[in-house]
Simulated assay, not measured.
Amino acid sequence: MKKITFTNPHRKKHFEFFNGMNHPHLNITANVNISGFIAYLKARELPITPSIVYIISKSANAIPQFRWRIRDNEVVEHETIHPSFTVPTAESDVFSFCTVEFNKDARTFLDSAQTQIEAMQTAPSFEDEAGRDDYLFLSAIPWVSFTGLQHAMHYHPCDSVPRISWGKFFEQNGETLMPVAIQAHHALVDGQHMGTYFKLLEEMALNPETNF
């Protein structure tokens, strides 16, 4: 982890402007083409949810601004951020958090994710490790092909962990699309970074053989 210091005056003003707002988060929802990705997973009998979590997390880790966090009005950058995603449980009709250490090796990550998902069925968790912000909060909403999403969160003290959700797949013009919503702190993440993220995510979905 390292400290980020804004030496560019305009970038510093951008940070201070949005960091001073009561609701400083930016939300963008877009559809991602996953036609080849889903076909690839099914042909190789790979688990769909952990595989989606993997490409979402890998895309986020590739963009420094998604790894930045605000602590006491200062910015730090994590070397790696780790997904904490929602999974159903056998204990209740509400979800459990499932945290998995991110690993660049897809098969290693999928194995770890499957193990954690199974553990959450009977021992659900609703707590994050105190003082830790190297997370990426993810959630699946497979019942709805949503067109927008707003997350519950604390605004004060500052919460700068990005939220990324994906929804129900749908067919359009012969392609399989997946709605993806991103919510991030605008003092850290701008529209350009969001655009880069969606481009990376779709590239990974369109070329699964390069990642799995």
Rank of each mutant, 00 (worst) to 15 (best):
T196F: 03
G195T: 00
E175Y: 00
G191Y: 10
Q192S: 11
H186A: 02
L206W: 04
L201R: 15
K199C: 04
L201M: 13
H186C: 01
E209Q: 14
N173Y: 10
K199D: 06
N211C: 14
V189D: 03
G195K: 01
V189E: 02
E202M: 14
P179L: 06
T196P: 00
N173R: 06
E175V: 00
G195H: 01
M204R: 12
E202N: 11
Y197A: 01
D190A: 11
E209R: 12
L206F: 08
E203P: 08
N173A: 12
F169T: 05
I182L: 15
T196C: 04
L206I: 11
N173W: 01
G174K: 06
E175D: 11
E171N: 10
Q172S: 05
K168L: 11
H185W: 02
M204P: 08
E209A: 14
L177M: 10
Q183P: 00
Q183F: 00
L201A: 15
K199M: 06
E202K: 09
E209L: 12
G174L: 09
M178D: 06
F169E: 05
E171V: 11
A181V: 01
F169G: 00
E203H: 15
L206N: 12
A184R: 01
Y197R: 01
H185V: 02
G174R: 07
F170Q: 06
T196M: 08
H185G: 02
E202Q: 15
G174P: 07
E202V: 10
E202L: 08
V189H: 02
E209Y: 09
L177D: 03
L200F: 06
Q192K: 13
L188N: 10
A184G: 09
Y197K: 00
G195A: 01
F198W: 04
N211M: 14
H193K: 12
F169M: 13
G191T: 10
F170W: 09
Y197F: 14
V180D: 09
E209P: 06
A205T: 11
V180Q: 09
F170I: 09
A205N: 08
L201C: 14
N207R: 13
V180C: 05
M178W: 06
E202G: 11
N207M: 08
Q172M: 05
H185Q: 00
L188Q: 10
E171G: 02
D190F: 12
N207A: 14
H185I: 02
A205V: 14
D190K: 07
M194I: 13
L177R: 07
F198S: 04
Y197S: 00
T196S: 03
H193L: 02
Q183V: 12
K199T: 08
A181L: 03
N211H: 15
T196I: 09
G174F: 05
N211S: 11
N173E: 13
M178P: 05
L177Q: 02
E175W: 01
V180I: 12
L177W: 12
M194W: 04
E202D: 13
